[in-house]
Lab assay of single mutants.
Amino acid sequence: TRVETATETAWISLVTALHLVLGLSAVLGLLLLRWQFPAHYRRLRHALW
């Protein structure tokens, strides 16, 4: 049971790290898009909202 718990903890930390990385890359990508294509971003936002 001790090994299982350790594996579970490792998986949880791995998944958390993955989610953090994905979230950060998504935010960075959005910022980059907004910085590179302001007109396109505004049009996209206008279409979405």
Rank of each mutant, 00 (worst) to 15 (best):
L48C: 14
S13P: 11
R2K: 14
R43L: 06
W11Q: 08
L20M: 07
S25E: 00
V3R: 00
R42D: 05
W11K: 09
W35L: 12
P38Y: 10
S25C: 15
R34E: 01
L31K: 01
L33Y: 07
G23N: 02
V21E: 02
L14A: 07
H46G: 12
L28I: 14
V21K: 01
H40D: 05
L14C: 09
A17C: 14
S25G: 08
R42K: 12
T5R: 00
V21F: 15
L22W: 05
Y41V: 12
L31H: 02
R34M: 13
L33E: 02
L18V: 14
T9R: 13
F37G: 03
A26M: 06
L24D: 01
L22E: 01
A47R: 09
L48P: 00
Q36I: 07
Q36Y: 11
H46Q: 13
Q36E: 03
W49I: 02
S25T: 13
A17M: 10
W11I: 10
V21H: 00
H40S: 13
H46D: 09
I12F: 10
Q36V: 13
E4P: 02
R43S: 10
R45P: 00
E8V: 09
V3K: 00
E4Q: 08
T9L: 12
R2S: 11
V15A: 08
L44Y: 05
Q36R: 14
L18Y: 05
A26C: 15
V27Y: 07
T9W: 15
V15G: 11
W11P: 10
R43K: 08
S13L: 06
Q36K: 12
L44T: 04
P38T: 07
L30K: 00
L33V: 07
T7N: 06
V21Y: 04
P38Q: 07
L32M: 14
L48F: 04
W49C: 01
A47V: 07
Y41H: 05
W49V: 02
L18W: 07
T9I: 13
A26V: 11
V27S: 06
T1A: 11
Y41D: 02
S25F: 10
S13C: 09
T5A: 01
L28W: 10
I12K: 13
S25D: 03
A47M: 04
G23Q: 03
R45D: 01
L32F: 10
A6N: 14
R34Q: 01
R34L: 10
H19K: 09
E8S: 10
A10R: 07
A47W: 08
G23F: 15
Y41T: 09
L18H: 00
L14M: 09
L30R: 01
L20F: 14
S13V: 07
T7M: 07
G23D: 00
V27P: 05
Y41L: 11
T1L: 14
L22V: 11
A39E: 15
T1M: 15
I12C: 12
L33A: 05
L28R: 01
L24S: 06
T16Y: 06
L18T: 06
V15I: 10
G23P: 10
S13D: 04
L32W: 13
P38H: 06
W35N: 08
T5K: 00
V15D: 04
L14F: 14
A6T: 14
L24N: 01
L48N: 02
L30G: 08
R42C: 05
V3C: 03
L30T: 04
R2L: 11
W11A: 07
L44K: 02
S25L: 12
A10I: 13
L22F: 13
W49K: 05
W35Y: 07
P38M: 08
I12S: 12
Y41F: 13
L32S: 06
A17V: 09
L44M: 15
Y41G: 05
W35G: 05
L30S: 06
T7L: 10
A6R: 08
T7E: 09
G23M: 15
L32H: 03
H46C: 12
V3N: 00
R34C: 13
L33N: 00
S13I: 06
L48D: 02
L31I: 13
S13R: 14
V21R: 00
L32V: 11
R45M: 08
L14H: 06
L28Y: 04
L18G: 07
R45L: 06
Q36D: 00
